[in-house]
Design a protein around this nucleic acid. Sequence first.
DNA 1: TAAACATATGCGATATTTTGCATATGTTAT
DNA 2: ATAACATATGCAAAATATCGCATATGTTTA
Lengths: 101, 101
Amino acid sequence: MKPTIQNSIVLFKALSEITRLKIIWLLINIDSKICVSEIIEVLNQPQYNVSKHLRILRKAGLLEESKEGKWVYYYIKETDSEFILHLKKAISIISEKRHGC
Amino acid sequence: MKPTIQNSIVLFKALSEITRLKIIWLLINIDSKICVSEIIEVLNQPQYNVSKHLRILRKAGLLEESKEGKWVYYYIKETDSEFILHLKKAISIISEKRHGC
DNA sequence: TAAACATATGCGATATTTTGCATATGTTAT
DNA sequence: ATAACATATGCAAAATATCGCATATGTTTA
């Protein structure tokens, strides 16, 4: 299905914040799931902000979560949306330098 | 050249506002230049806002302008950035419904 | 059961973005 | 030169997003 312009805005907004874009970039590039505490460590951001940003990414349809005991893992949601596939390809091109720290 | 994460943020922000996304969608889909007053008419937005949004899109590197007499025409900037090319492909997929009015 | 750990969320403070208005700039027509 | 038209811009107000803190929820370990 083609996205509406409103859908598209939600996705572009989700990707317009640096911590969120770093999370997505990381997940696309490592190509596996990762738990919240690892994201906090890699990006060096407070727990509550990482948590809020993950929620926004999940609501936008970019991520999914799986709860495993104490931990919550996040991973890139599978999609057949051409729109999202193009966005992912774009993100995978972003330069690697200085994403953590 | 690969974009930095900061470059990417500028682009995603530029595309995160509905009037701006509509302008880009329009220009990609008509595949020609268009003058400011036409954009104002099609999108039914005040002149000063259209003008400001065009400026943001131009500064982000998505549009270029050409002044012709009284009028200023805007058009999609040619690029060889793979990142921007993927974004354009994504945008061209967005559903046509209700972009004006 | 209590403590420790991992994550989420409500709310006010702060920062950023967008809007609306007034006005400026530049061009063409009379 | 003046008027009419097309577009741009500065600034304050309004709207929105983000952050920081406190605290809540849920899970495991002692």
